[in-house]
Each structure stands twice: as structure tokens, then as C-alpha cells.
Design a protein around this nucleic acid. Sequence first.
DNA 1: GCGAGTTATGTTTTT
DNA 2: CATAACTCGC
Length: 702
Amino acid sequence: MLDKLLAGLTDAQKKAVLYTTGPLLVIAGPGSGKTRVITYRIAALIHSGVKPFNICAITFTNKAADEMRLRLLDMNTPAGAQVSTFHSFCVRILRRYANYATINPNFTIYDRADQVRCVKQALKNCETDSKNFPPSTMLEAVSALKNKLVNPDDYRDQADDFFAKVLEKIYRSYQKILTENNALDFDDLLMKTALLLQSSPLVRNELADRFKFLLIDEYQDTNHAQYSIAKAIASQHNNICATGDPDQSIYRWRGADIRNILDFEHDFPNATVIKLEKNFRSPPNILEAADSLIAANKNRKQKILIPTKPPCPQDVTIDCFEDETEETAAIAEKIEQLRSQNVSLRNIAVFYRVNAASRPLEEALIKSKIPYQIVRGVEFYSRKEIRDVLAYLKILVNHNDEFALRRAVNSPPRGIGKITLEKAAQYARKNNISVYEALRRADNIETLNTGAKKRIRPFIEMIENFKSNTAGHVAPLIEGIFEKSSLAAALKASKDGDDAVENVRELVNAAADYDRANDAPCLIDYLQQISLFSDTDSYDTSAERVALMTLHTAKGLEFDHVFITSIEEDILPHTKSSEDHNELEEERRLFFVGITRAKQTLSLTYARYRTIWGQLSRTIPSRFLYELGLDFQDIDGEKKEKNLDLKNLTTKLTGSIVEHSKFGTGRVKKFVNTGQNSTVTVKFKTGQTKTLMLKYANLTIL
DNA sequence: GCGAGTTATGTTTTT
DNA sequence: CATAACTCGC
């Protein structure tokens, strides 16, 4: 059986799969079968008698975990829930050992939007000006500290400058707010688990004893907290197997520490290192380009990529277009061509650096009637109506979640406003109870008038009613809440509520999927699972549609035909990353990841002009294009410049500075080109905005 | 408490 | 520039 399993693997792969005890690092380039090695290794371990229960496999996304589980099922070696992401793994540990970690197991997981709300609250509590300390900056700083396992007390000792002192205060306050709401953010999941493993010998020993084998994929993108968890889990049996590629490390900005993989041999003495150098994915030309590009990184270990696929002509192209409209139209046309050659749309993907780039692409694809899907999972759950429904669910399991409560109370509006809630919050603080509990005892709050009490009562009754029915399947529960909370009625009554209702229906369907997939569906678990949803998780690989996604999301995927757009300076590499040497190298790795997704053809495009923030601006081809070793020349030229047609005039006039004899100088906001009767809308320096007939306005372009 | 008007924020990338 | 979040007056 095992022999059959191993047939078709290379010697290096076999060695990695069969390697039994001690630390193992598999350094492997793109398309070399890293994930395959992990999967086979699990299968081999199980075949040799190891129980799935004793194996812990960590993948980068839930999608990857699902796929791995499916493969294992195919190999007749189900590993069940033992395959998961770091975050899901931590949720399970924190729930099981909640009392050791002194947390409530019904915790809510706060996403980015919730986090921002908390930081704003923290800024308010600390009476700090949010102008000098923008919430997003503070949040990132707090997140960075958590990833390094630095708690507020640790930080107090190293905070010496003014910013650091403020940060410490904000961090402390932010953490207090989370605790009060019985909520954990993404970073807490890792940090609390890591600290629990450090501080509780009992928990550490139990887990370290249980997990005889630990396997971690995409190790190059682990942060310090994850490293600490891994170290603790492997502390007893020392059977850690990590796979990764330093050249594909693209999450440094999120706290990922490339040193984890570079120092593996130091961290885990007696480690064996196996390199997989054969690439089974891309044709030689694409690999050469990728190799040539990544060679420009100074901070890297030399690595080789040996192609195993035969060469095919025309596999890499670089094309220049006038603007993003032409660029995306050309991509749509190429996709149309592929389709006419019977290429399935499933095998085509378009990557871009920034999410904003998806819009012109969508327009072009719609125009050409090419079905597509934007791979961006979390977005669905951040829609207003979805958040509203989820707010109800969250209070049911965690009545301390004040953000959820505030949201639910007034969606739909119930006449319970800021003042009423503030009074309830005051009462809650005084009596050391949750705001929800305070509302439940509204009759005892003297400051509230009878009207307010009368409005609160039915709301509480409704929630209590829901509460008594939370057991079992989630989908019917959501459906019931949607109707009984009058959210459904309110949405149906609003004029563009049809889409919203449709979205909730989709939420119910997704919940039904969850109910089916789990033996013991439960609301808490459901909520925690959807909070850990990632972008790739929404990717429907079976749909006959072109996939659109960012370069980050593309990690770990592969497609026959890959398009990468807007390869221009300030986009790839991004403006914010082109100054710092390390960040620039990370941008290069990001491009490297994108290129190496291609199984057959790779089409790279850029435009000479691009609209950014509504402003048309001249672009510069990305320096990376010159590094591909493809004798690429910037096909820029004066001749194109002179052929201005009307369409170009439209785009050029908008945004430019003009002078008017009477109103002075101003910026063109809008240009409606109707030939003779064309109008321009100009915002003048005097502050007034005027719409003028172009032929009479007598404007001078400055 | 609610709507209209104003202003922050984002266009890096995400579990 | 476009949207979301916030503020202020009714």
C-alpha cells in the first residue's frame, strides 16, 4: 500500500515523506510539491500505525486544510480535524483550556472592523487625539507587539519615547475593552495560546505529549507567536516537519518573521534539511524569468529551480497599453481567445497588487460577457445586513459583546438611542454587570423614563426567546432571527433591500452547509469558524469562471493561464514599499509568487497612464520587468503621444489645472464630451465649482 | 432619534 | 474621488 502511495514521487520527495524522527525542514521552491509532501507524510505516518489523533498539521488557509483533508480521505487515511490553520487550532485550544487561560470559552472573535472600533474607543478612553494617533496606525502597532508576544506590562519597560508611552496606554486600554466584551482579536488567538503554553506546564505537557508529529506548511510566513506555539507543541517528541520557501515570504508586514525558517536548524538542533528543487508546474521560460527576477534579491539563499516540463513557445508575454481600459480590454480579449480554444475559464486567473485594480477588470469582463469571480471571502461577511444578523447571533452566545449589542438593538431602529444605552452602560458599570444585563433590569434603572423602558422590554424578551433556542442547527436559527427581529421586514420595505435580503439568504445557505459538514453543529463554533474565514476560502474552484485576486491571495494556487496587471512603479513595487530595501525585496517576492503560479502561459501587462484616486497620471514601467531577463524594452515613444484621440482628451482633461479669465485657476472635476456642447466642471481656487460650456469658457490648460 | 450635511480615510497586502 | 463614518440641528 505504501509503495503504491509513493510511486511517482521523486527521491527527494520520498525521503521527506518517509523521514521519521527528529526535526525536518523541507526547503522547496514553487511547484515542487511541498504540500504534497506534507499530505503524503501524514498518510505514511497513519499507514505506519500513528493515530490521526496524535498528528497536528498546520496549513496556511482553511481552504488548504480542507483540500488536504480531502486528499487524505482519498488515500483512505482520514486525519479529520487534526489538519487546520494556526488560528483555528488556537481557537480549539483556547476553548478547551479556557479556564487555564482565564478566558470565557464563549469569546467572540473580533475582525478588523471591530478592532478599529475598539481602538477608537481606547483613544477616547485615554483622551488621546485621534488626529495625531490614527486608529489604523495604533492598531498596527498593537498588533505588531502582540505578534511578538509583548504584553502591555512588558512594553511599559521599553517604552521610552512619547509615541511609545501613548501606545502603551492605548494598548492597555484596547486590551481592557476586548476583555470587557469577552472578545479576542486575531492576534490574541495566537498570543493567548502561546502564553498559555508558556505559563501552564500542564497544558503544554498534555499537548506536547499528544502531538507526536507536528507538520507546518508555509513556514516562511509564520510569526513569532506561531513559532513559540510550534516550539511548545514539539517540545516533547521533537518531531516537527516544516516546509516553506524563503523566496515566497510575503507577510512580513503582518509580523511574519523570515528568520523562523532561516534559523530552523539553529532552533531545532540536529534538524535534517531536504531541498526540493524540481518544479513540476511551469515551463522553462517562466521559471527562467522567475529565477532571473528573484536573483535580484540580496537577502536570500541561492536556490535552483529545475524545470521538468517541456518548453512551449509564447509562454511569457509583456504588453504595454495606453491606459487601464485598454489594458483590461486586451486581457478580456485574450481570455476570449483562450475560451474559443476550449480552455476552461476555471484554469485562468488574473492577479493584481491592489484590490482597487479589480474594478476596471470587472468592467471589461462584463462587457465581454466573461464570467468571473473575485476571490475575496471576508467581504461578504462585512456587508451591513450580514453584520446585523450576525450581531444578534453574537449576543446570544456572548452577552458581553457590547458592539454586537449596540448594533442589534437598533437594526432595525427601535427607538433605543444613544442616551438610553449610555444610561444602561452607566448602570452596568456601577453594578459590575454587562450592558445587556443592565437592559434586562431596565426597570431598576431610575434614570430611564417609562417610554424607554417600554421600548427595551420587547427587545429583551425577543433575545431571551432566541437564547432558549440556540441548540442544534444554525441555519434555521438564523432564518428565525431574521424574520422575528423584523430585520427582514425592514429590509424588504427599504427601496434597495432586495440584494440585502438575497445576501441573508446566502448566509442561511452557507450556514446550512456548515450544519451538514459538522456532526455536532453549534452556534459558538459556527461564529468562530466564520470569523476565521479567509479570502481563498471563498474561492469556488469548480466554477466555470475566471478568478480575480490579489497577488497575496494567489499564494499556494496554480493556474494554466496567468495574467498579472498594472506592473508599474508605485503599484508593484508599491509606493509605500519602494523606499525600504527589505520591503522592496518583499515586493519582488510577491511578484515572484505571482509568476510561478502559471502552468502554461504568463501574460504581464502595464499601462502608460492610469487613473489613481480619480487622477489620471503617467506611469513608469516596473523595475521588475527589467529584471526578468526577457530583453524587455519600455516601448514608450513620442509617436503615441501625438495621436491624441477624443477619448484620450477626455481622460487627459479631467484632473488637469486650468485658468479662467474671470474665476482664476481651478481643477477640472468632470468633462462631458458631447462634441460641440461639451461641458467641463471646474472647482476653482476661490472655492466655487462651476460647470461651463467648453466652447465659451476659453480655458487655458496649465 | 433621525436625516442631511460634513469630514475622515483609503489605494498596499490579510489570518 | 468615492465611500463610510461622524456631527449637528431639527
